[in-house]
Design a protein around this nucleic acid. Structure first.
Lengths: 316, 316
DNA sequence: TTGAAAGCGCTAACAG
DNA sequence: CTGTTAGCGCTTTCAA
């Protein structure tokens, strides 16, 4: 019995002869090991919990791909859970870790209050990805959102725009707040006053982008450019502009964020800020797995590079 | 110890008094049950394995959403695995079931040969979704792919097109073969000869659609309409057409398949065959969970409705 | 209604 | 190098 276990785990201290014998019996009996027993014994689930706001946004899918690839390489499986940015669901899912069904978590959710969620004095392995709480000690991987937004808006200003609107997401997201700061910084730098009525918060769906755009276009004084915090919003905005019979970029320029694959397929193609989605996922997974193997090593957060990609939606 | 277990599982035979006592102690000790022990004991993982070719295609994401919602409701978690339509990966993932890490499978992959994969005389709970092997006994949920394709192509013919190309996916996929049959049937019905050079097989990426379109447009005798077996391909095709300076639908009409959200956001908006993606996922999950609870109940496969959605890419 | 005891299938320490 | 044994944390008889 122990020997079988050793064969299965490729433990070196098994003679060739017995190994072959065991293997042949395994073959003959069609024996399949039961990992439930193993998991209990070694007290690991070899599962990584991934918390995403939504799976239908290609931005998140791409990150998940990165996580999955690295996880596989280290013999971990992925438990993908969509939270809809709902605190309650987040809590329920986190129970999977508390209950040992997952060894650690990578979260892309605003994460209400990890310190509270985790509880006093516990040390659950948690990595934040894209989204993070500034005041907690939990390591994260992200980009410089403020700077990225600043560059995007500056690009518009450089093109001569002075009436620049912003379609933002839920301010519970840190990235939403940071990108707004970048937006404001760019405006300020060029002495452009901020206009409340040109700033909308919404969810990341296409329709929301479309709706926001409609709202801008219904105003008497219309913006000539729009900065959207996600490509999905920008795509909705393009649609909203088109249905008013206006042209992009001649009448209104549009900038998105993320550089999802669809961005370059649009008509016009979308200017956007590229995030290294796949790489972020990989890095987050690497960090988590490292933490699992070395629980006491302090982990440093990682800021990856972004890049402004200029396409037709700002420069026809 | 047994009593604690009973309290945790809400077993009725616990007096109010002891239950409260146990609960208060649980609270005080911050006790968290270890599901690894439970899983071993009851010999269930309460996990559902989901096999998808790729997660970046919104078509699959939507189905997964449906599965997840139903699974949650029944207290199952989801193990999402992307196979890239690679037989080897499929096998490796299926080991999760053999090893009891998942209680059952929903597969959207061509599934080489389930009967072979599963092995003689075993009865693993497997449901196929969208994609299935015709000759196996494994239940599936899908649409009538042949009919759907037929209707799509007929729509083009009715509009006056006689030169209709097809961008198809890997013929390992049954749906690819069935949709081709529908395409051929429509052509035949109207006495239009099939042209080998107007039929391409490729993967589902945008670029592939774009490339296929370029190939068509490089031919001397160009088609005036294209039927694509997925919206992602169709979106790529739109791009390919645009880069040649042609107009949709005036010069070339395009039909997609799936009705992913992006389809209505394109410019022009995309005519496509809507599949009830979310509902298919729900149904597959329901079937699987039923099978888990009643292993010997025979399950009937399900064919859901599709719908041709006509938009600008065929009728400007 | 509660407690004692067995055992799910595995791994790891120990002895031989 | 191999076999024996204990025990991971839980549920479920069985007896009290």
């Amino acid at each position: 019995m122990a020997t079988v276990s050793r064969v299965l785990n490729k433990h070196p201290s098994v003679s060739l002869k017995t190994r072959l014998k065991v293997e042949s019996v395994i073959q003959r009996l069609q024996y399949e090991p039961n990992m439930l027993g193993r998991n209990l014994r070694i007290s690991q689930s070899r599962m990584l919990l991934i918390l995403v706001p939504s799976i239908s946004n290609p931005f998140y899918s791409k990150i998940v791909q990165g996580i999955e690839d690295v996880a596989r390489k280290h013999n971990y499986n992925i438990l993908l859970c969509t939270t809809d940015t709902d605190i309650e669901r987040e809590k329920i899912y986190f129970d999977l870790v508390k209950h040992k069904l997952a060894d650690g978590v990578i979260s892309m959710d605003p994460a209400v209050d990890w310190d509270d969620l985790i509880g006093e004095g516990r040390n659950y392995p948690v990595i934040q990805c894209c989204e993070y709480s500034e005041n907690s000690q939990i390591p994260y991987v992200s980009i410089d959102n403020r700077m990225a937004a600043y560059k995007a808006v500056k690009h518009l200003i450089t093109l001569g725009h002075r009436k620049i609107a912003m379609i933002n997401s839920d301010p519970r997201f840190l990235y939403a707040r940071l990108r707004k700061e970048g937006y404001l910084k760019a405006l300020e730098e060029y002495g452009i006053p901020y206009r409340e009525e040109w700033s909308i918060h919404t969810d990341l769906g296409f329709e929301s982008g479309q709706r926001a755009m409609r709202a801008f276009l219904a105003q008497e004084d219309k913006p000539t450019a729009v900065f959207c915090v996600s490509d999905t919003l920008a795509i909705g905005a393009l649609k909203g502009i088109k249905e008013e019979g206006l042209r992009v970029p001649q009448d209104i320029a549009v900038v998105g964020f993320d550089n999802i694959q669809f961005a370059s397929m649009m008509n016009p193609t979308l200017t956007t800020v590229a995030q290294p989605m796949y790489e972020m996922g990989c890095e987050a997974a690497r960090m988590l797995i490292h933490k699992l193997n070395h629980p006491d090593d302090p982990l440093r957060s990682v800021i990856l590079d972004h890049e402004l990609i200029i396409r037709e939606s700002t420069m026809g």
